[in-house]
């Protein structure tokens, strides 16, 4: 199913503009992530698509060629996975998954067959008769997903589906969720504030800030060609090199770097993996922190710009705390972006 939103906005009763007029198109089978910090309007957008919020007049929501703007939530045929999972505590796993099918008034045999199929798909066979409270966080997440998917919704919506889990589990379930969503072969939108989640699961990421989508593209596009300082720092945490531009040179506190010829603005950004510790480097700074992360070290360096910067180091000769080091920044790795409006 193709989802199409045209000039959809949301102003709350107290005058807060939660969502500025937004256009969004999601193609059949595409998995799109709405990524942004809290309060950026991503959940509001998701709730408008679900029908849990009414958009301001003028906004239209299309499911294929059906205008669903005025259709109440129970008739929109969307599956939704809530942040808290919102599983019915008075029902077993099976009853939870079968609830949507029961509401469709399907024959009992059909419901049983479909529930079994979904249980199988989500690897929940062993837990079918359990009470919800007897499940772990990861199992609950899968039940929530199974319940949303069972009535074969036109569109699957996920609101921060991993944020209720602890860090170790989150990473495993992130990959599991990515595999499951592809297996369902369904158009899906999922909201997250975690860029790793967005990149791991989504085909396309729409980055949101202050109630609008600021950039939308594949994870690679967002990472390599951010269109704003916000996207650059939010996706892949690029650091701002604040200094004086002099022709093709950028003069920083700790030395000079050459700027690339192409760019959309005059604010220079660079990512940690593009700052190399190199004894012939043109920049100098002091080692503040060294964090061992298994595959590499993260080195915090001061004195290059007024703020500390971070470099990724994977050699053998680990820099010592307080040591004066030299650094290089590849010209081509510098992103030139328009300054904030």
């Amino acid at each position: 199913m193709t989802l199409n939103l045209t000039t959809t906005a949301k102003t709350f009763g107290d005058g807060t503009k939660a969502l500025l007029p937004t256009n969004l198109k999601v193609n059949t089978g595409e998995i799109v992530s709405l990524l942004g910090p809290s309060g950026c309007g991503k959940t509001t957008l998701l709730r408008i698509i679900a029908g849990l919020e009414t958009p301001d007049p003028g906004g239209k929501i299309w499911f294929d060629s059906d205008d669903v703007t005025d259709l109440p939530v129970e008739r929109r045929q969307v599956g939704m996975v809530f942040q808290s999972y919102a599983l019915f505590p008075n029902m077993s796993v099976r009853a939870n998954i079968g609830y949507g099918l029961k509401m469709k008034k399907l024959p009992k045999a059909d419901i049983e067959a479909r529930v079994s199929e979904v249980l199988e798909m989500c690897q929940l066979n062993d837990y079918a008769q359990r009470a919800i409270t007897a499940l772990s966080g990861g199992q609950r997440q899968r039940v929530a997903l199974a319940r949303a998917i069972a009535p074969r919704p036109r569109l699957l919506l996920l609101d921060e589906p991993l944020s209720a889990l602890d860090a170790a589990l989150r990473e495993t379930l992130r990959d599991e969720l990515a595999i499951l969503l592809r297996k369902f072969n369904i158009t899906a939108i999922f909201v997250t504030h975690d860029q790793n989640e967005a990149m791991a699961i989504a085909d396309r990421v729409a980055v949101m800030s202050h109630g609008e989508i600021v950039q939308s593209g594949t994870p690679e596009e967002l990472y390599r060609k951010p269109n704003s300082t916000f996207v650059a720092s939010f996706v892949g945490s690029a650091m701002h090199l604040a200094g004086e531009i002099n022709g093709s040179k950028l003069k920083l506190k700790g030395g000079e770097v050459s700027l690339p010829a192409d760019g959309t603005g005059c604010e220079a950004f660079v990512r940690a993996e593009n700052i190399q510790i190199n004894k012939n480097g043109s920049l100098s700074g002091y080692v503040d922190t060294v964090t061992f992360l298994g595959t590499h070290y993260r080195v915090g360096i001061s004195g290059v710009i007024s703020e500390p910067i971070t470099s990724i180091f994977s050699g053998n000769k680990v820099p010592k705390l307080g040591e004066k080091i030299r650094l290089t920044i590849e010209t081509q790795s510098i992103l030139l972006l328009p300054s904030k409006a």
Partner: peptide
């Protein structure tokens, strides 16, 4: 969210 979940399920 429980009520909303029930409504999304029809």
């Amino acid at each position: 969210a429980l009520e909303e979940a029930a409504r999304t399920l029809g």
